[in-house]
Amino acid sequence: MAGGQGTTFGSARRRVSLPKAADLVADDLRREIASGTFADGELLPPGTVLLERYGISRPTLREALRVLASENLISLSARTQGARVTLPSTDVAANYAGVLMQLRGTTLLDLERTRAVIEPPAARLLAEADDREAALDKLRAALDTEKQAIASGDAVAAGRAALDFHDAVVELSGNVTLATTFALVQSVVQRHQDLRLSEGSDPSDHEAHLRNLGIANRAHAKLIRLIEAGDADGTEAHWRAHAEIVAEALVENDDARRIVDIV
């Protein structure tokens, strides 16, 4: 019986695709960049060094570098014939994530509820930190910027300033994973918000947006006071309640049901 199975298995001819040399070189260089061997803005070793290191042809090396350039990990310069490391920004990642969310029918309400999951624990980490004074200074500066933007009557600038305050809360928590994930979500929210409030939109939208931002600004000020007092429970509860108020307001807003539009 075993022989019969072997004959059956061997009779079916299959093609096995091996990785291309260029892909293997790109994989190795990508690991080097991700591990910090090459810093942002630094030139990769000259082509002659890379050719000798990998034992490949020049066309193969060019193909490997084009792969990395397409991923925004390096920039290629015809003038210097060099490859410079350009670490992708959150905006680049958010652009891809935003298009994917739009294709999958993500709504503004979905995003707001995601923010409500991430932000309260991050705010709690800030309140629990022993060395939170520097973080508080940055939050106060962000709050002042927000107040000034609201007072200017520029709804787009005020909206961005409010989002920046939320960004600061999560970023200053010290949790890199939370901050990176949140930055992706925030970037999509901001692009959607900017588009909705772009030139030609209904002026009443701007006025309502500014009123809501004024209410939010007071909630932001209270958050700072709770963090300053080291009230971790109060901080988390307040920030969760604030997020829920925003989400509840959106439920009554038809715009919340719209698919996020960033392109």
Rank of each mutant, 00 (worst) to 15 (best):
Q193D: 03
V185M: 10
E236P: 04
D110I: 15
P203S: 00
M101R: 15
G234M: 08
A22E: 04
A162I: 10
P203A: 10
I56F: 12
I245Y: 10
L65D: 02
A64P: 07
V25Q: 06
A94R: 12
R113V: 02
Q81A: 10
L126C: 07
E112Y: 15
D130C: 01
M101V: 01
T180E: 07
S187E: 14
T60N: 02
E71N: 11
A179S: 11
R132F: 11
T90G: 10
G200F: 03
R79Q: 03
L108E: 13
I56C: 01
S187G: 13
E207D: 04
H192D: 11
A247Q: 07
A157Y: 03
P45M: 02
E32D: 15
Q190F: 04
G55K: 06
D23I: 03
D167V: 14
A83W: 10
G200A: 00
F9T: 02
A116T: 06
E228I: 07
A2P: 07
A219W: 09
G41S: 07
A183I: 05
A168I: 13
I262S: 08
E112V: 11
H242K: 06
V246Y: 05
E248F: 07
A221P: 01
A229R: 03
P120C: 05
L184E: 06
A122E: 11
V49F: 13
E207S: 04
S187W: 13
L65W: 03
A94V: 11
T37Q: 12
L111Y: 09
V169S: 01
A26N: 06
L109W: 12
R30P: 00
D144N: 13
G10Y: 09
A183R: 01
V92E: 13
S57V: 05
L184S: 06
I56D: 06
R240A: 14
L87I: 07
I262G: 08
K222A: 05
E244H: 09
A142H: 09
A142T: 13
R140G: 03
T86V: 11
Q186H: 14
R140L: 02
E63Y: 06
S11P: 09
R31K: 12
G47R: 10
L44N: 05
T90A: 12
A219P: 10
R30N: 11
G55I: 05
R14M: 11
Q193I: 12
V117T: 09
A208Y: 01
Q5M: 12
L100N: 13
A219F: 08
E42D: 10
A162T: 01
H220E: 09
A162E: 05
D194L: 01
I150A: 10
D23Y: 05
L65E: 05
A219M: 15
L210H: 04
V188D: 06
P88H: 07
H166P: 07
K147T: 02
S11C: 12
E112Q: 12
G174C: 14
G36E: 08
D202T: 02
H192W: 02
V188H: 06
A155L: 00
A12V: 15
L125S: 10
V92H: 05
Y54H: 08
E128V: 04
L44G: 04
V246G: 01
R30S: 10
A141M: 13
G98H: 07
G82E: 05
R104P: 14
L184P: 09
S204I: 08
